[in-house]
């Protein structure tokens, strides 16, 4: 393969982008190495504290669980919906696209107040539990990302022909969706899932107002009480988020690709 020529201006922009991304991380890292008593460098005490802190792990686990639940619920709800819209009622696509803009337009603070009122009076197992109420809210927040990812995925394949080919070979609707359509929009579903994961792991307003102790809430609490430790917690969670993304990517791959991925990683 021939080496592609990279324009100098591209390199400059790339470096600028990298700086924009890495400088805050680096600053946080340096900050997190300071000693609690003196404020001087360098100690890993904050990291030890974070790693041995039960609440850190507890809240992080809760957030990851909520993220996974949000992803599963979103996929179950939206994959068949978007499929059906593309196949049978393409006119509704515009309506869905409009609805997908609502979570952007309505600020989370307004959304949560509305949701708290709307769901008031629902059973406690839903209203009082993060995997009930919070996930319901997060599915709405994730909707635009899921929708636009899936929508572009469905546009990239010939939904009609694939469906008809599958049907003419005797496949039912569920079978067509699972064995023919889903594997071919895998990348799109994965992209939507990443975004949902990122959103849920970082969501503060709704969790705070509905008083659930998710990871961002905990982080905020630590930040107010122990600034250096908060830096360490941020970086650890950042690393864990990246790991979560990578494993999602891994799970989303096909068996053969998975082996190749492992071989390449070695």
């Amino acid at each position: 393969m021939t080496r592609r020529h990279i324009a100098p201006s591209a390199v400059v922009w790339l470096l600028l982008g990298a700086a924009y991304f890495f400088i805050p991380l680096l600053a946080t890292f340096l900050f997190s190495l300071r000693q609690l008593q003196t404020g001087h460098c360098c100690t890993v005490a904050s990291y030890t504290w974070v790693i041995h802190n039960g609440q850190f792990w507890h809240s992080l686990k809760l957030s990851v669980e909520l993220a996974l639940e949000t992803i599963v619920v979103s996929l179950i709800l939206f994959v068949p919906t978007v499929y059906w819209v593309h196949l049978k009622v393409p006119r509704l696509r515009a309506v869905l696209a409009f609805m997908a803009l609502v979570p952007f337009v309505v600020p989370p603070i307004v959304l949560v107040v509305g949701l708290l009122n709307l769901y008031k009076g629902t059973p406690t197992w839903f209203y009082g539990q993060p995997w009930g109420f919070l996930v319901a809210a997060y599915v709405m927040l994730a909707f635009p990302y899921m929708f636009f990812s899936l929508d572009s995925g469905f546009r990239a394949i010939d939904v009609h022909t694939l469906t008809e080919a599958s049907q003419s070979l005797g496949a039912s609707w569920p079978r067509t969706l699972l064995t023919v359509i889903l594997p071919n929009i895998r990348a799109a579903a994965l992209a939507g899932s990443f975004l949902a994961l990122a959103i849920v792991l970082g969501e503060f307003t709704i969790a705070n107002l509905s008083q659930f102790h998710t990871f961002p809430i905990y982080l905020q609490y630590v930040n107010e009480t122990q600034a250096y430790a908060a830096g360490a917690a941020t970086l650890v969670s950042f690393g864990i988020t990246w790991l979560a993304m990578l494993s999602l990517l891994f799970v989303g791959r096909k068996r053969g690709q998975r082996a190749a991925f492992l071989a390449g990683a070695r």
Binding site: I157, D158, T161, L162, E164, A165, S166, Q167, S168, L169, G170, A171, S172, T179, V180, P183, N184, R186, K254
Partner: peptide, 28 residues
């Protein structure tokens, strides 16, 4: 259509992209 036992070949390329040629033939 899935109960009719009719084989169809389409104008557009209609093979399932996620399956090999053999898997495509095997599908039905």
């Amino acid at each position: 259509p899935n109960k009719r036992d009719m084989g169809m070949v389409f104008q557009a390329y209609s093979l399932f992209p996620n399956m090999t040629a053999a898997q495509n033939v095997e599908f039905g």
